[in-house]
Amino acid sequence: MQPPLMQVQGLAVAAGGQIVQQGLDFELRRGEVLVVVGPSGCGKSTLLRHLVGLEQPAAGRVLFDGQDLHRGAEAPRAALRRRFGVMFQAGALWSSMTLGENLMLPLRLFTALDAGECERRARFKLALVGLDGCFGLLPAQLSGGMRKRAALARALALDPELLMLDEPGSGLDPLNAARLDELVLHLRQYLGTTVVMVTHEIASVFAVADRALFLDPQERRMTAIGSPQELLAHGPAAVRAFLGRAAAT
């Protein structure tokens, strides 16, 4: 059995000087889609920022492939982070660059590929998300759904082992949100990418998750982890109520 890709051990995460979640312990298995779910304000996005190494934990540690993401010299940690692809909630495309430049910047900075090969790969990644004709467009020229897909394409630029998605479906209509879910499943199936997705779209949880992790804002801890069906049937009452009500709507 392969060792887990990521191990979260006793993690406490803070936002604005307040601990929002503590005592988090879980493992991320290679090739799985783990969805982090919970009510608004429970710390889902904050947890994701800790998992990608953008924030220092208040306690505990995060190991990626056995190496600590938050301690040690910056250069090796930066190299670890480059094995992630991160799609931020608002897309976070660099607004002064075209989509092509957004995708090519990491390739130019961190690979030995020549300019032509960088461009070919960038165009391919844009084609994967259905934006093959948008290479020269600026982010401001795109619709919200297109921007999300472009952000996903950029997250894939360096062929990451682990894809982190922060609310990919928020602000999208149901059709576009479902399309994004399908895309995530295809990426996992064809590229073997491990995915951590933060969402409050319960339809997405049931569509893509191998396992769901539920964060409770009152208790400030993880109250359940398991397959969505398992949690809906046998999870704690609050989790069943959350998943059940959201699934019903």
């Binding site: 953008l54 190299a79 480059r82 992630f84 608002a90 976070a92 660099w94 607004s95 961190f110 950029r154």
Partner: peptide, 17 residues
């Protein structure tokens, strides 16, 4: 500040830039 609000700077830091 606009880049920071839009998480563009975080996107750079994640890449190690």
């Amino acid at each position: 500040a606009t880049m920071r609000a839009g998480e563009e700077i975080d996107a750079l830091r994640v890449l190690g830039v």
